[in-house]
Write a protein that binds this DNA or RNA. Structure first.
Lengths: 203, 203
DNA sequence: AGCAAAGTAGACCGACCTGTCTGACCACAA
DNA sequence: TTGTGGTCAGACAGGTCGGTCTACTTTGCT
């Protein structure tokens, strides 16, 4: 890890476009991985910096505090998930229920990916439980967005009570996230898809 | 909190039946509340001891380490939940689906109680994610028990595929735990009950 | 060439962490 | 009376925490 600093150019702050510096990116992606695997409070700043190959001052210049770094990680992740999911929805085929089942297919892929170690938003709400704490706020915002996305899909299907069905589907989704992490079994997501199909058929 | 030590008898080790000392109980219930509200790593030993009015040596004599205390809290809680739930099931009325819907009624009561601040088992698995860590093991054991309880109820109903239905119901249950904590809205549990009724009717 | 901006390593800070240890207190039983 | 076992307060140890600061180097732009 350390010999690189003397042999190769440490990526000379390419363009440094406001918020897009390479060091900032390294911090965000390293933080995401370490926090996912070990938890937020369990990972110290120093560990994170060593892993990312970044100096402490850079972190505090870019983010101001550990909690803000966590918030930035969550916001970046929320954007990535949203765009990945909507891209998948755009190509969804199948019957009228295809779009919603595609959400659960996407979920099944997510929990199967080797980078999945539980939902970072749920963990954030657990470790920062106060309403005023930014990580918890980021988690609440993201999960509310998930429910709205589901609700919109239900609405487009002309379901009688779209809000009710969306909330039920959301329960399945969150349950699948928790159980696939807790039992280390991605099958939970496919069971959620099965259950979603039943709820859809009944609505 | 502190004046008691000088004015009243600090409960002179009544009977001290092996594992049932009063101090041990104080530690367990205080720990449960603080961990639930703030998280495991966020609560330091000293805070916990001050709140419980117990000396440090007592904690380490009784439990050996913080992680073992956490494990003991989880095991005690698992026992309480199991007996409370099975007591409820014993008195469950209603149609053939009554027993299973009673589980969700019980859940609705739980998440409505003021002491509810999210599921301690899910939080434990988040903060102690390694397979070898005792809190995570306690969480896995408890959640597996939940699934088995559900499966047994399904089996008694003569459902075609009891394991499959039990897993689906379990997803709803866990989803309700997460969302009622995350959105601070106990309604999640009643939505879970509604969805469970749909799944039952379809099976 | 010269300068400002960004990044560097690492010392440093006070607070807090888990866990150990000492020495005393107190209720009760022999 | 004399243990004895559980508990007490609090000092202590060794580490880690998040965060600040200084002094230096590298970089890109002019």
């Amino acid at each position: 890890m350390s010999e690189r600093a003397t042999t190769t150019k440490p990526s000379p702050a390419r363009t440094s476009s406001a918020k897009g510096s390479a060091k900032r990116e390294a911090l965000l992606s390293t933080a995401e991985e370490l926090f996912a695997r070990q938890g937020y409070r369990a990972v110290g700043i120093d560990t994170l910096l060593a892993e990312a190959g970044v100096a402490k001052m850079t972190l505090y210049k870019q983010f101001g505090s550990k909690e803000e770094l966590i918030t930035a990680v969550l916001e970046r992740l929320a954007g990535e998930i949203t765009s990945s999911l909507t891209a998948r929805l755009a190509t969804a085929t199948g019957g009228s229920h295809g779009r919603i089942l595609a959400v659960f297919d996407w979920l099944a892929d997510w929990v199967r990916s080797p980078a999945f170690h539980g939902c970072l938003f749920i963990k954030a709400a657990s470790e920062y439980p106060e309403s005023g704490e930014r990580p918890r706020q980021a988690a609440e915002t993201f999960k509310a967005g998930c429910r709205e996305l589901l609700e919109e899909q239900c609405r487009e299907l002309g379901i009688a009570d779209p809000e009710r069905l969306a909330r039920q589907l959301h329960l399945l989704l969150e349950g699948a996230l928790v159980l696939s992490f807790l039992e280390r079994d991605p099958q939970a997501a496919t069971h959620a898809r099965d259950a979603a199909a039943v709820l859809l058929a009944a609505a």
